Simulated assay, not measured.
Amino acid sequence: MMLNRNSHAYDDIISLPHHISSHHPQMPIHDRAAQFAPFAALSGHEAAIWETARRTEERMELDEDAKAVLDEKMAMLQILLPRQPQITVTYFKPDEKKSGGSYITVTGNIKKIDEYEDTIMLVDGLKSFVKEICNIEGDIFTGKLPKTHNIR
């Protein structure tokens, strides 16, 4: 086994007491540890890189037939609104930081259609602009309603 020739270089001072200054206060342990923390020369740079790499989807343009179907479904929802039927809505949520956004699908009972604000609101408080909706589904559109939901 080969020994490092410098392994005994400090034998003469290793057992001496640690020096404590009489003029300068001792640095707290937390501040001493901070000296060895990683340093980010460009604060926020990593977050900017992640933001640039984050993908968004482009908004789909609905054709006239799809718009007509959505209009029919909205009219049916307006009629059945007092019964608060359960629906599944897919809508586009624009991204707050860059172009594009994401499509979100939620299921819940409809509470209100606000024609002034052009929004649809679910019982749980979720609100979406009607112009952002690309699909609405539910049993009310397929004729599979419970007897309490039949239109008379």
Rank of each mutant, 00 (worst) to 15 (best):
D11S: 14
Y103C: 00
A48Q: 13
P28M: 02
A37W: 14
H19N: 03
P94C: 05
N135C: 07
L126C: 06
E61Y: 04
A48L: 08
I104C: 10
M74L: 15
L42Q: 12
L77S: 08
K147I: 03
L77F: 01
E51I: 00
I14L: 15
M76P: 02
Y91C: 05
V106E: 13
G44R: 10
R54I: 10
S21W: 12
I133P: 01
L81C: 13
D95A: 15
K73N: 11
K93V: 10
N4W: 00
L70N: 06
R32F: 13
L62V: 05
F39T: 10
A9I: 11
T142M: 04
G100L: 01
K131V: 14
K111S: 11
F141M: 10
K67N: 10
D11E: 15
L80D: 04
I136C: 05
M60N: 08
I13F: 07
D139L: 05
A68I: 06
I14M: 13
I87M: 02
T119D: 09
C134E: 10
F129I: 02
D139P: 01
H149Y: 11
Y91F: 14
Y91K: 04
A9Q: 11
I133Y: 03
S99D: 08
A41K: 12
V106R: 15
H149S: 00
I14K: 11
N135Y: 06
E137V: 08
L16V: 02
M27R: 13
Q78I: 04
R83G: 10
L70F: 05
D63R: 05
P38Y: 13
M2A: 07
R55P: 02
P85V: 04
